[in-house]
Design a protein around this nucleic acid. Structure first.
Lengths: 354, 354
DNA sequence: AATGATATTGTAAGCGTTTACATTACCATA
DNA sequence: TATGGTAATGTAAACGCTTACAATATCATT
């Protein structure tokens, strides 16, 4: 065998431990062929009990770990999932990645993380990089810009990625072959919040958002639908777009003195906290004079004073479903749900009086 | 060549695009050998300009991507860094991972993320998993339990890992061969905060912590040193250990009615916010009657009311240094700093009167 | 035109697995 | 004891790259 001529393998196991062992070493030490070692390692049933024990003993003693690169070459998979996340320092996305990783791990997958930032170019670049690592599937965290023609390019590159591996969107929504979405029903969430505010007699609800993502658009639609259903007008000046920075929000609201509103529906908790800061700065009492609601039910909503009424969109469930679907797809199951919408739930705290 | 007999490769490139191309396909299409293709792909200087262009054109047209598994096999590296993070949903660690990933990416490395939780067993398990993926180095985020004999086992398994690949601790501290630490000088941070409180006449400073990590121990020592230097006694009942949960902290402090303190030095912002909630619940005015300081300067410190004075320990710098050191080590540089301590800085906000 | 140096390209071994297929061992049955 | 079937094991090709070394091309000198 060419192999033995290259590596002069001694008989003494202690001596061997120095270098990384390979399957030939194990085979030799246990007196079987590499095929048998491979079978043992991979839990094949076609190995006699005696042989299995013998090989396992050697493996244990020699601290052998199969080379994942070689295995990857043979199987064309390393059981690696790519996770693309615009910003892992964002509380919500970090939470998502945490849930995803946990579940992936339970299924024996590892994840390689790409933090792309929010720019289109950069997202595409990171996607390419992840794909070049021969990941088994790609999970994209965070809402997509697939609103009314807002960013047609995003849909395109995601569909392109889906031609290579199954793509799973966490809180994104794009339809296409090999694309699977799981997301919170933000239309309903915003509808419910708006309705609750209306019931408490609010007339001018400020819709506070920082982006034009699919998720944000759904919230907007829910907000508008609730207003319509209550027979209220939809006012353009009450749709307020700003930067996601607490103090910036405070300042910009302070600057718009003429803008009148009796409540704020913020599209995330950070925006909600910004609104609270504004109220504090102007000496407006919350919730007596102003109701404020956040969104996502993050830890921020519980840091503020008063604590922020928010919407829990069951991120854990979303992530869980994502991985379940992924496993199904990888197992070749047909007819996996491509459009998994999960209901939201209002979490009442002290920034509202309902 | 055996190869051509297996895959009947047509001359028409469009026809080829169906399956993934490999280096033989590219070689054939460009009329060169695979060695030359490899050289072009890896930017070797020993290729004529003409050939390079020709090959690159084919590569582009055929959308060829080198197989990372095969490359990994040959080079015994996939340019992959393992990041072990106890809890990626923790703001501080998520921020760290974000910084690390960004910098790694600039150096052409990808990172595979393992979220281990805080338990020893689980950490060891995840470490093994990461190592089995043949990562180039291992980065461990979060403080280690290497305090005064608190968890001797942790040091052991980290040293074991360091026998396989270089290990980099972000905010951890363990000495050993092949182990490189970068961390904030929390002794100094706590010392400075404590001194500032003392200067404002505080007599009974509550030291609020949730763990016995190296970092927490350093803070404790800084706190005690500052007290000593000011000629103050170190009182056991003022060292308060609790769970890291805002409402739990509020409740437990409320329950300890007899415990008197005029200021709180919290070991992280979450604990600090808990203390603020406690003050609010008891109607104690902050900062007039009670000063509260947090630690880490996270977004939480700016959500609360009043906003929390905190300590910025320059996480970005820590992460940056970590990667710089890592690259040096991988380049075979000798004498890389194994003990990189970075100064902290107080960020004054409204929860203190200094 | 022959020579030698250098630039460019090619050949084939090696990386460590998996697995189809071939071979051998084992055992019950005729 | 021969026979056939099954269980266990082994052999060798295949995965797609890198790279040492060999071979050839190129070109300026003599």
């Amino acid at each position: 065998m060419w192999y033995n001529e290259i590596k002069k393998v001694g008989e003494n196991m202690d001596e061997l431990k120095r270098d990384k062992m390979n399957i030939y070493d194990i085979a030799k030490l246990s007196g079987v062929s590499i095929a048998t070692v491979s079978r043992v390692v991979n839990g094949s049933p076609n190995v006699s009990e005696k042989t299995k024990e013998k090989v396992l003993a050697v493996i244990k003693k020699s601290e052998y770990t199969p080379n994942v690169f070689a295995r990857g070459l043979g199987l064309n998979s390393m059981k690696m999932i790519g996770i693309l996340c615009p910003d892992i320092s964002d509380l919500y996305m970090a939470q998502a990645v945490s849930y995803l990783e946990k579940r992936l791990h339970q299924y024996g997958y590892d994840c390689i993380l790409g933090c792309s930032g929010h720019e289109q170019k950069s997202k595409e670049h990171h996607t390419k990089l992840l794909l070049s690592k021969r990941i088994d599937t790609l999970i994209m965290v965070g809402s997509t810009y697939a609103g009314i023609g807002n960013n047609p390019r995003e849909a395109e590159y995601i569909r392109a990625a889906a031609r290579q591996v199954p793509v799973f969107l966490v809180n994104g929504y794009i339809q296409g072959e090999n694309i699977f979405c799981s997301y919170g029903d933000d239309f309903q969430g915003a509808y419910d919040i708006t309705t609750a505010l209306i019931r408490r007699g609010k007339k001018r609800i400020l819709f506070l958002s920082d982006s034009r993502t699919y998720s944000a658009e759904q919230k907007l639609k829910g907000y508008e639908a609730a207003l319509s259903d209550a027979g209220y007008p939809i006012l353009g000046d009450l749709k307020f777009y700003t930067k996601n920075d607490i103090h910036y929000i405070q300042d910009i609201l302070l600057a718009h003195r003429t803008l009148e509103f009796d409540s704020v529906l913020a599209c995330n908790d950070s925006l909600g906290v910004g609104a609270l800061k504004y109220a504090k700065a102007r000496g407006i009492k919350v919730p007596e004079e102003l109701s404020v609601t956040g969104y996502n039910n993050s830890v921020m909503s519980v840091c503020s004073e008063p604590e922020l009424t928010s919407v829990d969109n069951h991120l854990e469930q979303i992530c869980y479903d994502t991985i379940e679907n992924m496993v199904k797809v990888l197992q070749g199951e047909k007819n996996v749900e491509q459009n998994n919408k999960i209901p939201c739930q209002i979490v009442k705290r002290c920034s509202t009086d309902f």
